[in-house]
Amino acid sequence: MFRKLVSVCFFLVVTVCPKLVCAQKNTGTDNIYARENLIAWCIVPFDSEERDPVQRAEMLNKLGFTMLAYDWREKHVPEFDAELEALKKHHIRLQAFWFYSGPNPENDKYLPVILDLLKRHNLRTEIWCMIGGIKDMDKMTQQQKVEAVARPVAYIADKAAEIGCTVGLYNHGGWYGMPENQLQVIDYLKRPNIGIVYNLHHAEGDIERFPAFFPKILPHLMAVNLMGLKKGNPVKVVPIGQGDAEAEMIRIIRDSDYHGPVGIINEETAPDAEVGLMMNVDGLKKILKEQGDSGALKTYR
């Protein structure tokens, strides 16, 4: 009887609240900057070598990455199945699948393709979601903006929940990219499988505000992607370790209660994805050394 009760409880957690399952998967290390906690990100369309799925997986093995967040363009759609098969063969976890949509995701031709793909491969992962193309946002009140964005997010989140996946609101500038606005959307929808993916490479306007809002997004934070930021007018996005703002942000994240994965990206770093990932890993190691994070450093080869 007890075993049956435990089985029922586990079934309810998995099917009703997939975010809880996601959180459990992301707590495999005591140090968030440990090598095994890093996600490779922005390496599919941002790669001058145009690696195929097997070559990409081999590169990740070579560099020591065990997780990939998959970004793509239309030309990569025929490779979706091959990508997931290569990741499985090379023991790399699909941590997230990127998706961009407009105000009517029910008409998006690729959302059903992605959902079917994940379902066929029995993958419960995160969908890093960008929403754009909503007309006349500048004429709306704040509440109207929240409701306009919430509608497509709700549709995507409900479809994702049907296959046990979570949705991360992905900051990429504009109203949707403001953490405070994302928090309002989450509060309005109250869906258990919606969180936030925070990107330093789209945080040019957040440097001074970061210590104030970061604790507020922390309960909803699914992933943090690192990049270098050099103060100025405008702020410049640079490789990790070459800016003058990211080190303090990296320290704040470490000193918080965040225990999820950390993304290392290639976008805006180098044409070759392998070179870009290595540059940013080396930059992170430099900062970790300066901050005396010996626990994380000992995990790097």
Results as ranks from 00 to 15, higher is better:
172 H>Q: 03
177 G>W: 01
250 I>V: 15
254 R>V: 05
225 N>K: 09
195 G>W: 03
215 P>A: 11
270 A>P: 09
246 E>W: 12
264 I>W: 08
181 N>E: 07
221 L>M: 11
240 I>T: 14
262 V>Y: 05
266 N>D: 11
202 H>F: 13
283 G>K: 10
197 V>F: 02
242 Q>F: 09
199 N>L: 02
227 M>Y: 11
176 Y>A: 02
228 G>N: 04
267 E>K: 06
200 L>R: 00
273 A>T: 12
219 P>T: 10
234 P>N: 10
196 I>T: 05
266 N>Q: 07
182 Q>E: 13
174 G>T: 04
289 K>W: 00
230 K>D: 03
277 L>I: 09
285 K>F: 01
173 G>I: 03
279 M>N: 11
208 E>I: 12
236 K>C: 02
228 G>A: 06
274 E>L: 00
249 M>V: 06
261 P>Y: 14
291 Q>V: 03
234 P>W: 10
273 A>G: 11
185 V>A: 05
213 F>L: 04
172 H>S: 01
218 L>E: 13
219 P>F: 11
198 Y>T: 06
191 R>A: 11
191 R>T: 04
258 Y>T: 11
284 L>C: 07
252 I>Y: 06
205 G>S: 08
174 G>E: 08
240 I>N: 06
278 M>D: 12
249 M>R: 05
288 L>C: 09
209 R>H: 11
246 E>N: 12
265 I>H: 08
217 I>R: 01
